[in-house]
């Protein structure tokens, strides 16, 4: 059984950490979850999501809001090198999410990472087993832009024909790693791309084909 351990911090830090949670958490987290559920059910569609969460940098407020919606004391969270040692962020997460932070990527239910160059390989996260493929990580990958441009042509469950998506910035290794992940089905990780005001999802079932500009715009909803 996992328990949250409250870091004893100075009064100031505690007060700061107590600020910036979800307003009307019951309703806001329901709204955020529905966007997430729709996005996961329709891979590659870009969902605008509003939140009033204010989390310490470099975590995007929307990433923090997704964590506050989905994670808690039962779900270990892993933060990448750009976030893991930032005390204010740890305090915020402890107070508003209550999830234990873990050092090993494969111990995490949720992992937060920046899409830039140094992204750890997808295969370092929990992929579940053949018998319990649900015991796998959901990665929240922070990016700057999500666009329905034909960089990628997505197909698979949840997509009528194909769906175009462009994610930037993103590690050049991502697509190759994703193909490997996709092949593992039913095992694998699932990805939520988080931009400042939007999200888009790639469940493990989604196949990525690189750019076909000709068949691009018709699939955008």
């Amino acid at each position: 059984m996992t328990r949250t351990s409250f870091n004893k911090t100075s009064l100031e830090t505690s007060l700061e950490a107590m600020q910036g949670g979800l307003g009307e958490p019951v309703y806001q987290s329901q709204r955020i979850f529905r966007s997430l559920m729709d996005a996961m059910a329709r891979p590659g569609t870009i969902k605008p999501v509003a939140t009033d969460a204010r989390s310490p940098l470099p975590m995007l407020p929307l990433t923090a809001a997704v964590l506050a919606t989905m994670a808690d004391a039962d779900t270990p969270v892993w933060l990448d090198g750009t976030m893991k040692d930032i005390g204010a962020l740890n305090d915020w997460l402890t107070f508003h999410v209550g999830a234990p932070l873990v050092d090993e990527p494969d111990a995490a239910t949720f992992a937060v990472l920046s899409g830039k160059r140094d992204m750890p390989a997808l295969e370092s996260f929990a992929k579940g087993g053949q018998d319990y493929p649900d015991r796998s990580a959901t990665l929240l990958i922070q990016v700057e832009r999500l666009e329905n441009k034909p960089d990628w042509s997505l197909s698979g469950p949840g997509i009528k024909d194909t769906q175009s998506l462009a994610v930037s910035p993103l590690s050049p290794l991502f697509v190759a790693q994703w193909q490997e992940n996709h092949k593992l089905f039913p095992r694998g990780v699932d990805v939520v791309f988080v931009a400042p005001d939007t999200i888009a999802c790639l469940p493990r079932t989604t196949a990525i084909t690189l750019g076909h500009p000709a068949s691009s715009d018709k699939q955008d909803h």
Binding site: F33, L36, M37, M40, M70, T109, D190, R204, T205
Partner: peptide
Amino acid sequence: FAYLDEQTKRMIRRAILKGIAIPGY
């Protein structure tokens, strides 16, 4: 709201997302 406590909802919501990601499992 909707009877369940938030922790329970989170647990169910996580299961729903994994269910969508692994259709039929």
